[in-house]
């Protein structure tokens, strides 16, 4: 399947906006500026994808680890229902270079207080859902 010029342009712009959001989150967490470039869009069969991506991934030191932590951090905000940060751990506002390196070997975790808050929020949500659903008929 080939994209038309209009489709490619629209997809590039949508991905560009997504990258912009991701870069802003990454920049906020690491305290570093992220230099954005225009994304390159290409269609390829699924079984060729890993070969096409490998050269890009090899230029970075475990980027998937950092991206995974950023995603977990953002999901953490949703689960904690707050935009505020913790002094340590996964929900820290800025990760130092040392912490970024360490996460490759030892994944960061929520602080005990954050973890307890997430459990409480989830339990509260389950209670509300159960109440809304009403009694289960046998």
């Amino acid at each position: 399947m080939n994209l038309t010029a209009v489709q490619e342009d629209a997809l590039t712009e949508v991905i560009n906006i997504g990258f912009g959001r991701a870069a802003a989150s990454l920049s906020k967490l690491t305290g570093q500026r992220v230099q954005l470039e225009v994304p390159h869009i290409a269609m390829c069969p699924l079984d060729e994808l890993s070969d096409r991506l490998r050269p890009m991934m090899e230029t970075l030191s475990r980027p998937e680890v950092l991206i995974g932590h950023v995603l977990a951090h953002e999901i953490g905000h949703k689960l904690l229902r707050t935009d505020s940060h913790s002094p340590t751990g996964l929900m820290k506002a800025h990760w130092s270079n040392v912490e970024t390196e360490q996460m490759t070997f030892q994944p960061m975790t929520f602080t005990p207080a954050d973890a307890a808050q997430i459990r409480e929020n989830l339990a509260g949500g389950c209670r509300l859902l159960a109440a809304a659903a009403g009694p289960i008929a046998n």
């Binding site: 912009g20 959001r21 870069a23 500026r33 954005l36």
Partner: peptide, 8 residues
């Protein structure tokens, strides 16, 4: 722009 970083 989509580059919404504070530094930008």
């Amino acid at each position: 722009s989509a580059d919404i970083q504070t530094s930008s």
